[in-house]
Design a protein around this nucleic acid. Structure first.
Lengths: 334, 334
DNA sequence: CTGAAAGCGCTAACAA
DNA sequence: TTGTTAGCGCTTTCAG
């Protein structure tokens, strides 16, 4: 067994209470005993047991993060932002890859409950009733990232998708495009689907006058493969589109890839704008113009909110983050 | 406070020991009391406290994963493999983004030690003496992924980089290339640098006869940006290279991107082969031919080894995983 | 400034 | 089959 606080106390000829005070820097010890105890700790290589500590203090210094996938740059970047903030404050993060699967999510939540995490960050997924139920039973702070809940009082941090989507479409319109298709995710998706479609339509209609016609292709997810499939439909559609607004970078890159296969040049023959502005947007050929979400900052901010809730007990203010339009080389003026 | 085992015991008119037995399915209770207790648990919404449990059982059902970055597909995929396996067995994983920073790594290790994790998976980084020292003090199993230690008895799972690198180069040679450059990572990197360079050289020399000349461009990391910079050097080099072997997919894509900028067509003017076979390889234009590492399986396997070590107490056998060559569209025969 | 002692919620002998 | 009890390693009153 590794040494416990008792061993330290004994060897230093003090009580365990004193050692505990020194460890936690609580008032009630002299400099002299402090140095003595510190030396013993050093000698013994003593390491406080966070488990025991957690049992009495009811604070585990661990938070749980639930996300539908670990596999895209989007998730990675957010996680990165959370992780940095949490570790800065001496907390650890347990990742849970829900795989968009209800059973799995519920199982993870139960584990997190048993582990008595101090808080939960829930990313990119719709907060179902059943999830919220078990989460609220845990009585720990929750914050949502890149999603929100119309039904429950859970603070979120995200960008205004409708606005950002509007801006993306408007950007295309300003470049002279009129026949603009959207690769949209699912219209059943209340978070990443509906609002973006709404923004797209609003921009199209805002132009008022003309023939600006819509073409929306829904996809099951936001992957490269879905982007390719969607593009096939767009290319073969009678409406000869000059620009495409894709709901994620992967979707956009998939679309570009399919276009390329069909001999369609980007941006000469067709303009494309993506969404998220992940590293992938920088790495594509040509580099992808995209609506940018400050993913790292969102992760960071969510952690900040979570910790503030843990400390104050008050619900944090939700936070709408600014989007940007990162102009690169896939959109041309016509 | 949420209900404890005591509350359950009282309400069910049994002792806490009985409840504990039922919870852990240890012999010593009748079906009758079991159903009764289970019902009470249900009614109370009781959830066992893993912290208290861990304090006595000395098992936290939590493992720590250390990786230099969360931000590339490489790390994501491995983490995914680990996470799936761990959660399958009811354990959680704490991620630690070391950022390739010694101080930070050491800090994380200390936290993991205090949290009494059951084991550690260390990914992609050189196992420094100082790391090993604190890890071995923790007296928990460790396994290495995509790295290895010549000095310490720590099992690893990785592919044979030298062999894979040899194969990649040989593949290029077989396609008729003779002037093959390598974008190599750092020659100081004993894990991802040295062996791959060695394999590359060996293949070049194996051809025996001819003018097969080497051109190695080192990079600081394995990023897209480094790939671009390396490619600039290669293009401007007097040795007119016909093929490039890059030590990572990102490096390869960066190289392609730079080539593209200079009007060099892939693969007509120049062939490129990458390393890792992440999703990025599939998504690049044109799709990248690459040496494939079974990243998900490596993550999975490492977790399997770790858990087996935790259970048996014996050191697991290291494991060399098979590489593949994924032929796509960036290499042409000349 | 310091120590004794009572738990935190649970598991694991040991009795009954 | 069941209950009693002694910890696990720590924090936190409460007395000195």
């Amino acid at each position: 067994m590794d040494p416990t606080i008792k061993d330290v106390a004994k060897k230093a000829n003090v009580s365990i209470a004193t050692v505990s005070r020194i460890l936690n820097d609580k008032p009630g010890f002299s400099v002299k005993t402090k140095t003595k105890v510190l030396r013993v700790i050093e000698e013994l290589g003593y390491q406080p047991n966070a488990i025991a500590r957690g049992l009495v203090s009811k604070r585990t210094h661990t938070i749980g993060v639930l996300m539908p996938t670990l596999l895209d740059m989007f998730a990675a970047r957010i996680l990165n932002g959370i992780d940095d903030y949490a570790h800065e404050l001496g907390s650890s993060v347990i990742v849970c890859n829900t795989d968009n699967n209800g059973q799995r999510t519920l199982k993870y939540l139960r584990v997190l409950a048993e582990k008595r995490v101090d808080g939960i960050i829930f990313v990119s997924e719709y907060l179902k009733d059943e999830y919220y139920k078990v989460m609220s039973d845990m009585k720990v702070p929750i914050v949502l990232v890149s999603t929100m809940s119309p039904d429950y009082p859970v603070p979120f941090v995200k960008v205004d998708d409708e606005l950002a989507s509007f801006a993306a479409t408007e950007y295309l319109l300003k470049q002279g495009h009129r026949r603009i298709a959207m690769i949209a995710g699912s219209p059943e998706d209340p978070i990443a689907g509906v609002p973006r479609i709404k923004g797209y339509r609003a921009a199209l209609n805002a132009e008022g006058d003309e023939e600006a016609k819509e073409l929306i292709v829904s996809t099951q997810d936001f992957s490269y493969e879905s982007g390719m499939m969607a593009m096939e439909k767009i290319v073969d559609h009678p409406l000869k589109v000059t620009a495409v607004f894709a709901s994620s970078d992967e979707l956009a890159v998939g679309a570009m890839s399919y276009a390329n296969k069909r001999g369609i040049r980007i941006p000469e023959d067709l303009s494309i704008i993506g969404y998220d502005n992940t590293r992938l947007a920088q790495m594509s050929t040509p580099p992808l113009t995209a609506v940018g979400q400050p993913l790292y900052e969102m992760g960071n901010k969510s952690a900040e909110m979570l910790f503030s809730m843990m400390n104050t007990g008050e619900t944090a203010e939700s936070c709408l983050m600014p989007y940007t339009i990162e102009e690169r080389e896939t959109v041309t003026r016509i």
